[in-house]
C-alpha cells in the first residue's frame, strides 16, 4: 500500500471521526438524561442539511449562515420534544416506547422531506467546494476541514458548557442522579428539556457540516443511524468522552479499510465493532457506570 494514500485516508478518517464524535455526543446526552435511544437524531441531521441546501439555493447565501436559524430552532424543537412527548411516556416502558416514538418522528421527517423536496439527490455547489491543499502528499478538501472545524468548535463548546457553567453542572448532576439533583434544588424537568435541546442543536451543526460536501437525499439518515448507534455502544452508553473516542477510532478504521475493501464493505466495521462489544464487553470499552444496566 502506498504511503501517501494511507496518510490521506488517515487524515480523512480523522476528519470524518470528528463529525461522528459531535453527533454521537448528542445521542449520548439523550441517553444519559432519559435512557432514550433517539432514532430521530440522524433524521434531524438530514433535515438540517436540507435546510442548509435550501438556504444556499433559494436565498443564495452561504450554507453556514443557515445555522443562525437552525441551531436555535433545533434547540427549541429538542426542548419541546422532551417536554411535550418523551416525558409523558410511562416511566416503566420508557426506553422501549421512546425508541418507537423517535422512530415515528424519524419516518415522519423522512416522508415530509421526500414530499417537500422530492427524492432527488441534492448537493450544494460552493465556490470553494473544489478547493483543496496539500499536506505531506495528501490532498485535503477545504470543505472537509471546515466541517471538521465546525464539529470541533461545537464539541469544544459543549465540553466547556458542561464543565464550566452552572447549567452544565446542573445537567451533569441530572444525568448522574436525578433524585439527588432534585434534592439539592435543581429543576431536573427543565434541565432535562434543555439537555435535549442541546443534543438536537448538535444535529443542526452536524447537518450543516454534512451538507457542505455530501450528496443528500431523504432516506440518507438510515446510513447514519447505524454507525452512530454502534459508536455509542462501543463507547459505553452514556459516556460522552467514550463516544468521542469510539467515533474517532471507528471513523479512522472505516476510512483506512476503504482502501482494501471498498466503501460498501468498509461500513461493516461499525457493525462488527458493535457485535464484538456486546458479546465481550457489553458495558462498552470506555463505558461509564450507566452502561452496565442497559
Amino acid at each position: 500500500m502506498d504511503g501517501a494514500l494511507l496518510f490521506q485516508s488517515v487524515v480523512l478518517g480523522l476528519l470524518l471521526g470528528g463529525l461522528y464524535a459531535l453527533l454521537a455526543a448528542g445521542l449520548t446526552l439523550y441517553f444519559g438524561i432519559m435512557r432514550v435511544v433517539m432514532i430521530a437524531h440522524s433524521a434531524f441531521l438530514i433535515l438540517a442539511a436540507y435546510l442548509a441546501w435550501w438556504t444556499h439555493t433559494e436565498l443564495g447565501i452561504d450554507p453556514l449562515l443557515s445555522m443562525i436559524v437552525t441551531v436555535p430552532l433545533f434547540f427549541g424543537a429538542g426542548v419541546l420534544l422532551q417536554r411535550g412527548l418523551l416525558s409523558r411516556l410511562r416511566p416503566m416502558t420508557l426506553t422501549m416506547m421512546s425508541v418507537l416514538l423517535t422512530f415515528a418522528i424519524a419516518v415522519t421527517i423522512e416522508g415530509l422531506l421526500g414530499y417537500a423536496f422530492t427524492g432527488t439527490q441534492r448537493r450544494i455547489q460552493l465556490g470553494y467546494g473544489s478547493a483543496s491543499f496539500g499536506l505531506f502528499g495528501a490532498r485535503i478538501a477545504v470543505v472537509k476541514l471546515i466541517a471538521f472545524g465546525l464539529a470541533a468548535v461545537a464539541l469544544g463548546g459543549l465540553y466547556l458548557l458542561m464543565k464550566r457553567t452552572r447549567f452544565g453542572w446542573a445537567l451533569r448532576a441530572t444525568i448522574q442522579h436525578q433524585d439527588a439533583a432534585r434534592l439539592v434544588g435543581i429543576d431536573t424537568a427543565r434541565i432535562a428539556g434543555y439537555g435535549f435541546g442541546l443534543g438536537l442543536a448538535t444535529a443542526a451543526v452536524g447537518g450543516t457540516a454534512l451538507s457542505l460536501d455530501t450528496t443528500i437525499y431523504p432516506s440518507l439518515h438510515w446510513h447514519w443511524i447505524g454507525p452512530l448507534m454502534a459508536i455509542i455502544v462501543v463507547g459505553g452508553l452514556g459516556s460522552v468522552p467514550g463516544a468521542a473516542a469510539a467515533a474517532l477510532i471507528l471513523g479512522l478504521a472505516q476510512s483506512v479499510l476503504q482502501i482494501p475493501m471498498g466503501t460498501t464493505w468498509a461500513q461493516t466495521v461499525f457493525y462488527l465493532a458493535l457485535f464484538a462489544t456486546l458479546a465481550f464487553r457489553p458495558q462498552g470499552f470506555f463505558g461509564g457506570r450507566l452502561a452496565q444496566r442497559f
Binding site: 426506553t95 425508541v99 443511524i225 454502534a230 452508553l237 458493535l274 456486546l278 457489553p282 442497559f294
Partner: peptide
Amino acid sequence: GFAALRVRGASFVIVSIAIVLILLLVFQS
C-alpha cells in the same frame, strides 16, 4: 441473541436495527 440479550433493552433495539442494515448491505453487495 447472545449479543443482543445479555444486556437490557436499549442495546437490543440497537442490535435489531443493526441487523437490518447489515443484511441489506450484504444482500445488496
